[in-house]
Amino acid sequence: MNMALLDKPRIRQSFAAASATYDQAAALQRRSAIDLMREAEQEGIRGTVLDLGCGTGNLAELLLAARHKPDAVIALDIAASMLEAARCKLNRKDGLQPALHYVCADAERLPFADDSLDGIYSNLALQWCDRLEHVLADLKRMLKPGSPLLFSTFGPKTLQELKSAWAEIDELPHVNAFHGEEELMRFLQAAGFSACRIRQTLHMPRYASVVELMRELKQIGAHNVHLARPKNLTGKAKMQAMYRAYERHRSEGTIPATFEILIVSARA
């Protein structure tokens, strides 16, 4: 799949703006973090680990409270305000023993040395990387041999109802595109990872209206970040036409939205 180039400044701005509203709207992200953590516990957590794209700290909080705790957790995010939200949340927790460090950096320009990390974990963040294959190669470089990489990411079925509704209006990319299982496996193998596994889950929350869905996406910072997206405000007539197209999915008083989550595990 040819992924359109992503607008990195818009990604940073979107998540910075969403830092105050993220937690109240991010039920799916919290559920995904819990699922990811179950896999992490099975794989084994030790040493110094990285929470890549930590957001408000949901996964970092679980890593700090793990049954077999790491020695240190590095919480990293591209948006400084997200890191501050994570700091406020995690500093209120008592009895969290591992050392905790905060780093503001881009996942595509990570400041870590070769063979320096005992594990990398990431919850619904790597889909915002422009060249994921390069990012995975860099993560392999930073991991000690045999150490785990475990991340969740959105799959291509995500928001398929919204994509379908927009496709009836025009041919512009109104919804972000995401890598599928075959591409992810190819990227992992090219980067030199072994024991690669991908597990898919589908979530279909329901909403009272398309406006409610769009509001939630805004609250978690999940804007359209393709460089080829429409640059001007979408006109009212187009928006209303899209709403009508989406309404065809309504049943029993609500509309669905599909979120495909891929949980990926591998060894360096």
Rank of each mutant, 00 (worst) to 15 (best):
M1H: 10
L6T: 06
K8W: 00
Q13Y: 03
S14H: 06
A18V: 06
A20L: 13
A26N: 14
A26T: 05
A26Q: 14
Q29K: 04
I34M: 09
E43F: 11
L50K: 13
G55E: 10
T56K: 09
N58W: 07
A66F: 03
P70C: 10
I74C: 06
D77L: 01
I78S: 03
S81R: 13
A86N: 00
P98W: 02
A107T: 04
A107Q: 12
A107S: 11
S116I: 00
Y121K: 04
L124I: 00
W128S: 06
C129S: 13
R131D: 15
V135E: 10
L136M: 06
L139D: 12
K140F: 03
M142N: 09
S147F: 04
L150E: 07
K157W: 09
T158W: 01
E168I: 04
P173F: 01
N176G: 09
Q189F: 10
R197L: 09
Q200M: 04
H203G: 01
V211R: 15
R215Y: 11
E216C: 12
L217H: 00
G221W: 02
R229E: 03
K231D: 11
K238P: 02
Y246D: 01
H249Y: 10
A257Y: 01
A257G: 01
A257Q: 06
T258A: 09
F259E: 02
F259N: 07
E260P: 02
